[in-house]
């Protein structure tokens, strides 16, 4: 099995942990993993991404355009930014909730999440939009968008992993007091 995935969002949204959970789950299944992510200044509110590749005989952790089997968009604008990386038949899972840059608040040049989602809908046959506001409210924590998106990706089949693989990864990487909340987010449908 070979799978290429991109997780993208805005610094502070939890893309790195989500990427780590997938890697850990894949490794537990003895699938080789390579990944790369944004670290440094861009983490202060900039656009961030993780590239993650699973499978044998890979050289580079980086993914080329049109090569991603799955894009997990933590933010609609960022999902559009990285859309060129998605395979024509690739799966995209995207959060509906925009994160406005500070510049938008300053100059009234905000953008509409609807425009981004419409654009994605017109180009991505396999698009899954997660109503993030509703999901976070129903799960009961503003901090678990990453697990909610991972859950949606699991059920789309594009992750190539089972729910139990990710739950084991949660047990390995996240403190026990948050397990129950994270499982709830992962199972949220």
């Amino acid at each position: 099995m070979r799978k290429n995935m991109i997780l993208c969002g805005v610094g502070g949204q939890g893309t790195v942990l989500a990427s780590r959970l997938i890697s850990s789950a894949a490794m537990a299944r003895r699938i080789p993993v390579l990944s790369a992510e944004t670290i440094g200044m861009a983490q202060r509110g900039g656009s961030v991404f993780s590239h993650l590749r699973m499978g044998e005989n890979l050289y580079s952790p980086m993914i080329a355009r049109g090569e991603a089997d799955l894009i997990l968009g933590f933010e609609p604008g960022e999902a559009v930014r990285l859309l060129p990386f998605l395979k024509p038949d690739g799966q995209m899972v995207v959060s509906s909730r925009p994160v406005m840059p500070v510049t938008a608040a300053l100059s009234d040049t905000g953008y509409r999440a609807e425009d981004m989602l419409d654009y994605l809908a017109s180009r991505v046959p396999r698009l899954l939009v997660v109503d993030a506001e509703k999901a976070l409210r129903e799960v009961g924590s503003p901090k678990v968008l990453n697990l909610i998106l991972l859950g949606a990706a699991l059920r789309s089949g594009a992750l190539g992993l089972e729910a139990e693989d990710l739950k084991d990864a949660v047990r390995r990487l996240i403190p026990e007091k948050f397990h129950e909340l994270n499982f709830r987010a992962l199972d949220y449908a």
């Binding site: 559009v80 859309l83 510049t103 953008y111």
Partner: peptide, 15 residues
């Protein structure tokens, strides 16, 4: 690769 013209994307300088 077909040229796409997405809607204008947010600029996110680090803050």
């Amino acid at each position: 690769v077909p040229e796409e013209t997405p809607p204008p994307l947010p600029v996110r300088p680090p803050v």
